[in-house]
Design a protein around this nucleic acid. Structure first.
Length: 416
RNA sequence: CGGACCGUAGUGUAACGGUAGCACGAAUGCUUUGGGAGCAUUUAGUCCGAGUUCAAAUCUCGGCGGUCCGACCA
């Protein structure tokens, strides 16, 4: 893409109404736009990142045998009344509205109920199980206090996966498979080093421990206790002798850290299958409730966490797996040959299926270089009179700032 | 939901109850081009509503919106 055609602009100053680093940088770089507190638009560059994250997650979900669906965001109160979660006393962040007919309607804050109710029509026999079903879908949560930029918003895209198993044992096997898939996901988006599987409480419905994936960051909302050797952690809410014993952790090996919850996986037991009537018959014709689990990753929060954790003073630093473009070609100076040379390189990279952003704007050199740092593409290539005279390509890695002089073929190889 | 603070051009900021100013941006022209260039001209603003006052960006009330602390977070 040519930057002269990108409608978004960068800003030099931080927005006055944000204090969170993720929002400051993403807004300054033109990746997102704020509509309201906790309500953001994704602009072209931001959307590219979001789609890459989505692709990474989808690939991992498919690998563990999950099937993708897309449920509606409009939800009937009936099924929520069956599980006793329609009342504002039970779920306090509902967005509710009405149909033209006057009847109540909920905007999805999660999808356990509708999916469970839907599967009553499809799952009957032990032969139909297990099933793993996921989607990327918008969740609406009427947060009392939206905060931390895009980390805690009122509308967000979530990958939610639900597992349906015959027995607790069968469920546990998949649960661990999914935990591994999650680990792969966080590794791939560049957060693996600082992300820990963390024991946490199951919330309102269960005494069983659940697992969160927590990324260490000072801007996190959670306090966790980390064993950096065993790569395990415990959330403060269940930090006690019993939990530590269960996990085989010792107090003296644990360090207190702030962290961002980037994903969670948890057992649902038969809570929803019981209340919504999702049962199956075993080989002997006996009826059993389906054993369920639920597994979520908020895409916006994950994107924001990448910015929080990996950016530096110059701006954002995207890992190549999620960067909007692999290469940022920056044409310096207003000379016709420079722009021609840069365009030639741009076209050649495109031909080789390398995603490239060409800065073909007529701006001062300093401004373009500062913009390149802010936008954070993994590789920056400068084309100027100097580089043309020398006859090779100047490549700078955004992350380390290392400058190399390469041939075009070497650059292409470096991108692949 | 409890508490604190805040709302002025597109952005960031200033103005004692008394002429709304500055910088950046944008536009035009000329110059400039390896780390946020220069000159000239131009552009654009007090969140909404009510009240007090000779006079309100400024004081009062209400609404809307924002940030932070706490609570909440299936």
């Amino acid at each position: 893409m040519k930057q002269s055609q990108l409608f978004t602009k960068t800003r030099w100053e931080d927005p006055a109404d944000e204090t969170a680093k993720n929002a400051k940088l993403l807004i300054r770089a033109g990746f997102i736009h704020k509509e309201l507190a906790g309500v953001y638009d994704y602009l072209p560059l931001g959307l590219r990142v979001l789609r890459k994250i989505e692709h990474i997650i989808r690939t991992e979900m498919n690998k563990i045998g999950a099937e993708e669906v897309l449920l509606t965001s409009l939800q009937s109160p009936d099924i929520w009344q069956k599980s006793d979660r329609w009342s504002d006393d039970k779920v306090d962040n509902w967005f509710k509205t009405k149909l033209a007919s006057g009847s109540d309607l909920g905007l999805a804050n999660t999808h356990e109920e509708p999916l469970t109710a839907l599967l009553v029509h499809h799952l009957n026999s032990h032969k139909d199980l297990p099933q793993y079903i996921y989607q990327f879908q918008t969740k609406f949560r009427n947060e009392l206090r939206a905060k931390s930029g895009i980390m805690r918003t009122r509308e967000f895209l979530m990958k939610d996966l639900y597992s349906f198993s015959k027995t607790e044992a069968e469920f546990r096997v998949f649960y661990e498979k999914c935990a591994t898939a999650y680990k792969n996901i966080f590794d791939q988006v560049g957060l693996g080093e600082v992300t820990y599987r963390t024991a946490a409480s199951g919330g309102a419905f269960t005494q069983v421990l659940t697992d969160e994936f927590q990324t260490l960051s000072d801007s996190g909302e959670d306090i966790i206790y980390v064993d950096k050797v065993k790569k395990l952690a415990v959330n403060k809410e269940v930090y006690n002798d019993e939990t530590l014993k269960t996990l085989g952790l010792n107090r003296q090996d644990l360090v207190e850290e702030k962290a961002i919850e980037v994903g969670n996986i948890f057992p649902l037991g038969t809570r929803y299958s019981d209340s919504l009537g999702l049962n199956f018959r075993d080989e002997d014709g006996i009826l059993h409730p389906v054993v369920m689990g639920s597994y979520g990753i908020g895409l916006g929060r994950l994107l924001g966490t990448i910015v929080e954790v990996l950016s530096d003073d110059g701006g954002i630093v995207w890992p190549r797996t999620v960067a909007p473009f692999m290469v940022h070609v920056v044409a310096l100076g207003d000379k016709k040959e420079v722009l021609e040379e840069a365009t030639k390189l741009y076209e050649n990279l495109n031909k080789n299926n390398i995603e490239v952003l060409l800065d073909d704007r007529s701006m001062s050199a300093g401004e373009k270089l500062a913009d390149a740092d802010l936008l954070g593409m993994p590789l920056r290539v400068v084309v100027s009179e100097k580089t043309i005279a020398v006859g090779n390509i100047e490549v700078k890695t955004r992350q380390i700032g290392e400058v190399k002089h390469l041939t075009e073929d070497e650059l292409i190889k470096l991108c692949q």
